[in-house]
Design a protein around this nucleic acid. Structure first.
Lengths: 341, 341
DNA sequence: CGTTTTTCCGTAAACGTTTACGAGAACACA
DNA sequence: TGTGTTCTCGTAAACGTTTACGGAAAAACG
């Protein structure tokens, strides 16, 4: 059932070299011969053995996406990544590249899985997500000279790799702007406690906007929690119990917002009535929650496509005539005004 | 930087054959020699080239999980799979098997991606999810003689492959039981409209329980919708507008439940007060929704581990001395009683 | 001491590709 | 006719492993 290039050669009574050249569209093969090869390939249901090809070419024709679940009580996934991956894989497929998603274990340090991919050469490049402010995966890959791109910025590694990020800073800024315009003065910010870079970026924008409006930055209104529903649930009461209650909360994550709203509900505080709520990254949850949550929406699928292009442009094997380029982009979010603010 | 087995051999002044044998723990190599090889491997930072190994052994040492996003307006993922994948990958890792997640595009038929994996021999086996009642992926893999296992049952392919499923039938049954015990007589069921097998199983249990309680099965109380929030939102009003309103709804999917609750809210109907709601597959959303949704919870991570074991037991290369076994299991769900019913 | 067994290791082929090299045939040109 | 060019293809090496085979040396045994 597994027909090889040798089978084709034997069947057509020509050499394997010619078969290979015909299949790969090289110029030095007779048009008629190529036709016969292609036809035989179809008839014998030939498809190239990836291992053989990889071995010879030193390339695997696949890109690894490192999906690291956050440690936590319940290990549910971030819906965020799926549309991104769809875009990523779609663009990669156009270049005959496979996308493989490599999972780590929640507690376990992702470094080990990454090493494995790199050292056994399972992929030609990797895509990192959940970038930390200081990210040793980036340090490792840079030092190893292994090609990679990141979804999200980091302070590690300089400007030596392609990266695509959402403009969390601006989103934090705009969220404050909007709330201030609606009369709010005490605005809380709730973000993940890990070293995740976007949490810092969001807070930068939040602070900047407050200052611009001449409002003080009250540390009692800023809280870090675990990046899931439980985290939001646990940490939201903390800001609500500060001496001077906030009248608005900006959540940096949809899961945290859900947990936070639960905590609010238990305190008898109704989002959209008693308090304004804005979420930075929109998901279907925000849309279908009651009240529907005002949120900032990214274009995930186009971002996936774009990061694929950026990664490819940085790979010598795929870079066009203009050579290898490192591109870094930061994309805006779109505000979706709903009922919660 | 990429040190091969040849480098080790040269460095130690022995043959590559011996190096390979030492590395693979074969018996016919001197203990001291093995020590030296292992040491050199560590020093030269050797790790085997996967392509070379795969080519020689005819095995890739990786298992593919096919993740097919449902077509829909917004392509968000099912959080369901992440904990399952964590368990799956954990057990596979113990056998030095990598897990790769292969994405398809939403609209596109997954068959094509699957073919690619199989024909180019990118994985040694595949794991299928979202099994349809009649599933041509299963037919294809069976016919191709390619090893696979499924998360979820199907009517295709007979009992020739390992499969692990949740007992949706019993969950549907128990949900009705519980609602009837609480005085409900008109109970609606909302499930996905695709050919997804669990939708049928759920409905079987639902019908069976109704009949046992001497209640008629009213087609007006059963609705199929798209398997996401929008689907639930669109289809829930339909059962609410039937001549004789239901007093309870069982949702076969958490996303549909969210959409459905939104529709209820817009009709001024409060889950937990005006209507009872039960969800078949629990997620953090159910727990943190207001009111918290009563739901049936699966043990996803253990299920992932188990399916890995079942798949391995069916692979000649990994089956123990007892030989190759096909195992099929159906696991119960645990009822988590909360506020919505 | 001779014979047999065991221990250890080197040799070389094989997995399925791609590709550098060279050669034969056909063709063009003077 | 001789020389150079172009077209087409076969040969063989190479990628990094694993492993069947055989042989040399050491050990065991009579």
């Amino acid at each position: 059932m597994a027909s090889s290039i040798h089978d084709l050669a034997r069947h057509l009574n020509i050499s394997i070299g010619t078969v290979s050249r015909a299949l790969n569209g090289r110029a030095d093969v007779n048009a008629e011969t190529r036709q016969r090869v292609l036809e035989a390939a179809r008839k014998l249901n030939y498809s190239p053995n990836q291992s053989g090809r990889s071995l010879r070419k030193g390339a695997t024709h696949s890109i690894a996406f490192m999906l690291q679940p956050h440690p936590g009580d319940q290990q549910y996934g971030e819906p965020f990544f799926i549309p991104f991956l769809i875009g990523l894989q779609a663009r990669l497929a156009e270049h005959d590249l496979d996308l493989m998603v490599v999972m780590g274990e929640p507690g376990q340090y992702q470094q080990e899985r990454l090493r494995r991919v790199v050292e056994t050469r399972r992929a030609d490049a990797v895509v990192l997500a959940n970038t930390r402010r200081e990210d040793d995966r980036i340090d490792y890959l840079s030092k190893a000279g292994f090609p990679f791109a990141t979804l999200g910025r980091s302070q590690s590694g300089g400007d030596t790799y392609p990266s695509l990020d959402i403009d969390f800073e601006r989103a934090g800024d705009e969220a404050v702007d909007r709330l201030v315009a609606r009369g709010h003065r005490r605005i809380a910010a709730i973000r993940p406690s890990l070293d995740l870079n976007f949490g810092y970026l969001f807070l930068d924008g939040y602070r900047k906007a407050l200052k611009r409006h001449g409002l003080e930055v009250d540390p009692g209104l800023i809280a870090d929690g675990f990046i899931n529903e439980t985290g939001g649930y646990q940490v939201t009461p903390r800001v609500m119990l500060s001496r001077d209650r906030p009248t608005a909360i900006i959540f940096n994550n949809d899961a945290m917002a859900l947990g936070g709203c639960k905590a609010l509900a238990e305190m008898g505080i109704r989002p959209g009535h008693d308090i304004a709520v804005i979420v930075i990254v929109d998901t279907p949850l925000c849309r279908y929650f009651s009240p529907a949550l005002t949120a900032f929406r990214p274009s995930l699928e186009p971002m996936g496509r774009r990061l694929a292009e950026m990664l490819l442009a940085s790979l010598p094997a795929f870079a066009g005539p203009e050579g290898t380029r490192i591109i870094r982009e930061v994309w805006p979010l779109e505000l979706v005004a709903r009922e919660s603010d």
